[in-house]
Simulated scan of single mutants.
Amino acid sequence: MVPDMAVVLGQFASPGPVAFQLGPIVIRWYGLLIASAVVIGLFLAQRLGQRRNIAPERIETLLIWLVVGALPGARLYYVLFEWDRYANRPLDALAIWQGGIAIHGAILGGAIATVLFARRYKLSFWQLADIVAPSLVLGQAIGRWGNFFNSEAFGAPTNLPWRLYIPPAQRPPGLEAVEYYHPTFLYESLWNLGVLGLVLWLFFWGLRHPDRLKPGTVFLVYFAAYSLGRLWIEGLRLDSLMLGPLRIAQVVSLGGIALGIGGLLWLYRLKRPLPDVV
């Protein structure tokens, strides 16, 4: 029997992508989760910004820039690598509520927006990156549950107690008879919560030891730690964006680990500040 609730005896089953409907207005879980992540992330970033002497109003303005950069970047990144799916229906590329965004595209778009924002207001990019990093990884932890409600971004078949039920219409070709898969959305959400704890601890440790924590450290630790988790979780997924035989997310994650570790070595081994990107 198909499970009819979110969790049944440890087995996950999505209740569907629609949260509720008011006449012609359809409210989807994916949109609610993204909106929640933005609001909670703003609250957290404002509190952290105050600890670094940046006014909450400035963080509110930065949020607008980040949304304008990150959401289109996330969608464009995904669509470019899945263009065969949208070539005959290009307007579907705008239907972000149906799922299909890539966090690496969001990070790239958000980074560009932050660079421009830092130039506009004459602030330190690395200071801003350190403040935003905890909100970013928290937003990733929340946003991953959008994949759960859309029955997407799941992993290989499994019989583990926490297996995820996937409806027949969402199953990969050749696996139509297989009901249960790895809940990779859950793995990544939990990993991101762990990274959140790490970077928050580091941020507040830096407040107590301002002469020992260098600008950019929190962001570099986030980038390397997130990439490490994504590297192995991506290996379980069946729907990875591909470039030939390579899983794009794993290639980018390897680069993220290298950049994160390399940046930390630059800061603390070579004892040089990170290059000013502003």
Rank of each mutant, 00 (worst) to 15 (best):
M1W: 09
M1V: 12
P3W: 05
P3S: 00
G10D: 02
F12E: 00
P17H: 01
G23F: 12
I25M: 13
Y30M: 03
L32K: 04
A35L: 15
S36E: 08
V38S: 04
V39I: 15
F43E: 12
L44M: 14
A45S: 15
A45T: 14
Q46M: 14
R47T: 08
R47N: 13
R52F: 03
R52D: 09
N53D: 15
I59A: 01
I59S: 02
E60S: 15
I64N: 12
L66Q: 12
V68R: 01
G69P: 06
L71D: 05
L71Q: 09
P72L: 09
A74L: 10
A74S: 15
R75M: 07
Y77C: 08
Y78S: 05
L80N: 06
R85P: 01
N88C: 07
N88I: 12
P90C: 11
I101W: 05
H104L: 06
G109W: 10
I112A: 05
I112G: 00
A113G: 06
L116V: 05
A118D: 01
A118Q: 04
R120E: 00
L123G: 00
L123P: 01
S124H: 04
W126K: 00
L128S: 01
A129P: 03
A129G: 04
D130P: 14
A133Q: 09
V137D: 11
V137H: 06
L138N: 08
L138G: 08
G139R: 03
W145A: 01
N147G: 04
N150D: 06
E152I: 05
G155H: 00
N159C: 00
L160T: 11
L160S: 09
L160I: 12
P161C: 02
P161D: 02
W162F: 10
W162M: 02
L164C: 02
A169C: 06
Q170Y: 07
R171K: 01
P172E: 03
P173W: 07
G174Q: 05
E176S: 02
E179K: 07
T184G: 07
T184M: 08
L186P: 06
L186A: 10
W191H: 08
W191D: 08
L193M: 02
L193E: 03
L193A: 01
L193V: 14
G197A: 15
F203E: 04
G206F: 13
L207D: 14
D211I: 10
P215R: 11
G216T: 07
T217Q: 11
T217C: 10
V218N: 08
V218H: 05
V218F: 05
F219C: 06
V221N: 06
V221F: 11
F223C: 09
Y226D: 13
Y226I: 04
Y226W: 12
L228E: 04
L228C: 13
L228K: 01
L228M: 09
G229T: 13
R230P: 11
R237L: 08
D239S: 03
M242V: 11
L243V: 11
L246E: 04
R247A: 12
R247Q: 14
A249P: 09
V251G: 02
S253W: 06
G255T: 04
G262L: 04
G262Q: 13
G263L: 07
L264A: 02
L264R: 02
L265W: 15
Y268S: 12
Y268E: 11
R269T: 12
R269L: 15
L270D: 14
P273G: 00
L274Y: 03
D276T: 13
V277R: 02
